Computed example of a mutant assay.
Amino acid sequence: MSSIVFENVSRVFQRNGEDLLTLDGISLDIHDKEFVAVVGPSGCGKTTCLRMAAGLEFPSSGAVSVAGKEVKRPGPERAVVFQQFALFPWKTVWENIDFGLRSKGLAQGERRDIIEKYLRLMNLTGCETAYPHQLSGGMQQRVAIARAYALNPGVLLMDEPFGALDAQTRVVMQEELVRLARLSPRTVMFITHAVEESVYLADRVVIMTSRPGRVKEIIDIKPVREAHHWDQYNKIEDVMDLESFVHLRTHIWKSLREEHAGREH
């Protein structure tokens, strides 16, 4: 069971010799194979939460655990996809995906089967011998996501993975990720600034307050998605036209606007 649990987590940074409280008392459970998006104003600590789940940063107080074990360091059961694609520029698409599988000591035949599976799922067949600089941004991010899924992690941590993409490519990648999440579900923590993206992708959306970041509200998306059959639509624009989608998007926008307004006064 690959759940992520934040237990009363706070994080203090030092700035100009003074303590800066960035996160304050975050308590959150992300259940096994649940897709949770986190939205909030800039500087509220969204990415800090993800980095703590990844074992790249640590709480000043409280604890973060994955699969019932407190996070002390990065681990193979947690894969991270960043906004910047983080591919090895000197390796081909195939070699980039193969790198982590080699590190796990898998046999060549098993590695081949896994790589071919995720090349096919991410529509990368035919790009096996290409180098990252020969691919568009969207194609590079497909490779990064394929590499993460190929490792078969229980937890997938995604920090604004589509933030560097143009609008049209971003929509295509959102549709691809929804399809992949249904075919090969993982426990996903997804950080984004895009409200529409969070509603379209997630089972639940966590809204954070302005700094110091706290959990303001958690919106249950999955029951609405299932009740109104969003998954019967292949294109995001068809889902975004639905009254149920518009209602959820508007609710989240209003909640975030309250935080921006409060910060300005």
Rank of each mutant, 00 (worst) to 15 (best):
A79Y: 00
P212V: 14
K216H: 01
L23W: 06
V215S: 07
G25W: 03
G75Y: 03
K104L: 14
Q141T: 13
W230E: 15
M139R: 00
L256T: 02
I26H: 10
S10H: 08
D241L: 15
R225E: 12
A194N: 15
M158I: 11
V39T: 05
A202F: 02
T187P: 03
D19E: 08
R51L: 14
R78Q: 01
G100C: 06
F88C: 05
Q174A: 06
G62M: 00
W94N: 05
K69R: 10
W90C: 01
G213E: 12
S27R: 04
L101D: 07
A86Y: 13
L23A: 09
G154F: 03
L157N: 06
D32V: 06
G40A: 08
N152T: 03
M208T: 07
V215Y: 07
L87C: 07
T125A: 03
P89S: 06
K69Y: 02
I30W: 00
I236G: 02
F13A: 02
T129G: 13
E237S: 07
T47M: 13
C49G: 09
T129K: 15
D238A: 10
R249K: 15
A53K: 01
K33W: 00
Q168H: 08
V71R: 01
S255K: 11
N96K: 13
R214A: 13
L87Q: 08
Y200N: 03
F99Q: 04
M52C: 13
T48F: 04
T47V: 08
E197P: 01
E95L: 11
A150G: 09
I252T: 06
H260L: 15
M158P: 10
